[in-house]
Design a protein around this nucleic acid. Sequence first.
DNA 1: ATTACTAGACCTCGAGTAA
DNA 2: TTTACTCGAGGTCTAGTAA
Lengths: 216, 216
Amino acid sequence: MTHIETLKQIASLGAMDRTVKISSSEIAEKMLTSPQTAARHLQSLEKNEMIERQTTSSGQWVKLTGRGIQQLEEEYNFYKRLFKARTPTEIEGVVITGLGEGKYYLSNDGYRKQIEEKLGFTPFPGTLNIKLDQENTIIRRSLDTRGGIRIDGFTSDNRTFGGGICLPIMVEEIRGAIIQPERTHYPEDIIEIIAPINLREHLNLKDGSTIKIKIE
Amino acid sequence: MTHIETLKQIASLGAMDRTVKISSSEIAEKMLTSPQTAARHLQSLEKNEMIERQTTSSGQWVKLTGRGIQQLEEEYNFYKRLFKARTPTEIEGVVITGLGEGKYYLSNDGYRKQIEEKLGFTPFPGTLNIKLDQENTIIRRSLDTRGGIRIDGFTSDNRTFGGGICLPIMVEEIRGAIIQPERTHYPEDIIEIIAPINLREHLNLKDGSTIKIKIE
DNA sequence: ATTACTAGACCTCGAGTAA
DNA sequence: TTTACTCGAGGTCTAGTAA
């Protein structure tokens, strides 16, 4: 147990920047628990080198250690990542004709089942290929760090099928995903989109049509 | 128990934006605990309306509720406040002559002892009064939200002494504090500073001298 | 493989005591 | 008042079982 809640309380009393005087009951009150529990937590935090303290008969002087501050920073960074990644981003490109491989792969049960399970829809057997302009290519690079949904590779009929990463998106109210094969190095400015329906037909798209996709 | 750690794990799997399929063992692994514990936490989170889920014999589909997301946002906001407040801010003003009340109050044992305990220094009996310009007045208002150190009011010799709030600062490498009485409404552009020494003498300040103070 | 439930081990809690 | 310690109650854990 890291007693992160107690550490938070101590930090909010200013103990990251200076030594502060606190009593167990004071912290206990804020945490809606007993002074004994707060005291035990303080002891434990000291033992784990999250705080430094001197106890006196009238209270205790406490300051967070570098490790304690780092612990809180890690929490902070976690939440930052969590909420930053949520900001929806739009990217734009033009429809092009791909190599037609998508149809082959998406007809494969190994991929289809994984997509059903992990993305929640049965993919139409075929991908929509989009060419991004320079500016949007930059946006796309940053997507790699967003962390998508892994599609695992597998072996079937003595052939190896590679894995990939999916990134859930919305195209005009249709739930879909960008799919990036792991090995094959597609040109960086081309993305492939899968969806539960035939997007080209449904949205009446032709080669050269511009299209906006929203990253979820 | 809020099981915030489990909620974090679920959220980092993308369950804030869509329903995701997860298994208890998957979460257990990330949290270095047993699948049983993870399963119990999931049940508990569902009961507390932090997540919605459907369990199947091959796993479960989970999505955070508004309440669950709010819970994480509150954590995020806590850390934001914690680290934002740490960024040191400088404010500037000119030295003026105050009413001389500071000397009277700081000679009082009730205040002196609290300042010694809570700020860690014995205050010189007297305050340095600073008049802020328009721009810095705005900065000062934001300080109220930073949360300072409370000095409690008390009664002594049949007289009531009001409480106040202290904000630790640095003035040219000298540790001090802005002190704001709780009741008396000082003009908003004037602050009073206390320190362990006579700042006016030590820094050779005269009325009209400009001075920079750094909020800790 | 998975979820759900049970039972005993284990640990954390808070009242009580001492200093 | 405070911290530190003890000990019994209650909660949480993991292993085992069932589906």
